[in-house]
């Protein structure tokens, strides 16, 4: 690998803007994520974290700015090129977003059967293997998503996200709605799976203990832009009042004061 290749970010967002009517959600979002790095985006509700992920996935089109994956601009891709790019990406949705009409193993194997045109039998074997990787037995594969608990749904969502051995994995609030023990289990699975697959990961969360467990680097999003970005070990001495207030969960600070002004 050349030095130039080694320095090419896996994902690069440059000055990305996204508006919904009068609401300016992303206001010049800029971030580089290096290969095999695990970056956690933290920030309050409504600051644009999920919108940012949807822009990378092509579910939303930015109004301005550029997004690159492996150095390739992705904002104006054709449908077939977008499908090829998304084939490199796995995603764990906040509520897992499992398909109700399919069994658990069919959910996990979905991308292999529909996206990669794999035979059902071979895809089922991989699905069972991935379910085992997230701690679920083969018997769970035959169940329907409605029969699963919240923690099991997250595990199945994680198995689906890693089923295609993606280069990039996104985690949208992976521990939301889980008890602390199950949250910890999911965090450990995320770290283990990302390392085993050798993927680059972006996670978004409000949950600071979870963020510290899964991140190599953290970025704080405030009013649609990154206001701090650095290694996880440095976040406690960021010197940024907004970051300090957020990670300490304090009611007093610049974020609260601005809310009071409204």
């Amino acid at each position: 690998m050349t030095d130039a290749t080694a320095q090419t970010p896996k994902i690069r967002l440059t000055n990305v803007h996204k508006r919904f009517g009068a609401k300016h959600v992303l206001q010049g979002f800029t971030l580089d994520v290096m290969p095999q790095e695990s970056v956690v985006i933290i920030g309050g509700s409504g600051t644009g974290k999920s919108v940012m992920l949807k822009c990378i996935l092509g579910l939303l089109t930015p109004d301005e700015g550029e997004i690159e994956i492996d150095g390739q601009p992705t904002v104006h891709l054709s449908n077939s090129d977008r499908e090829a790019v998304n084939a490199k990406i796995g995603m764990l949705f906040q509520n897992a977003a499992l398909f109700d009409s399919l069994s658990v193993w069919e959910n996990v194997a979905f991308g292999l059967i529909q996206g990669k045109r794999m035979k059902r039998k071979a895809a089922k074997e991989i699905a069972i293997e991935k379910l085992a990787q997230v701690g679920l037995g083969a018997d769970v594969g035959a169940l329907s998503p409605a029969e699963l608990s919240g923690g099991m749904r997250k595990r199945v969502g994680l198995a689906r996200a890693i089923a295609g051995n993606p280069d990039i994995i996104f985690f949208d609030e992976p521990t939301t709605g889980l008890d602390p023990i199950m949250g910890h289990v999911i965090d450990d699975l995320i770290v283990k799976c990302v390392k085993e697959v050798g993927a680059t990961a972006i996670s978004i969360t409000h949950d600071m203990p979870s963020a510290r467990r899964i991140a190599d680097r953290m970025a704080m999003l405030y009013k649609g832009a990154v206001i701090w970005n650095g290694p996880v070990a440095e976040i406690d001495r960021s010197g940024n009042d907004y970051v300090d207030q957020f990670i300490n969960g304090s009611a007093d600070g610049p974020i609260q004061m601005e809310l009071r002004k409204l």
């Binding site: 996935l57 998304n86 906040q94 109700d100």
Partner: peptide, 15 residues
Amino acid sequence: MRVTEQVDALETLST
């Protein structure tokens, strides 16, 4: 399917 992000999930699975 739309409000539970299943439609978005389809797109991320190249479908």
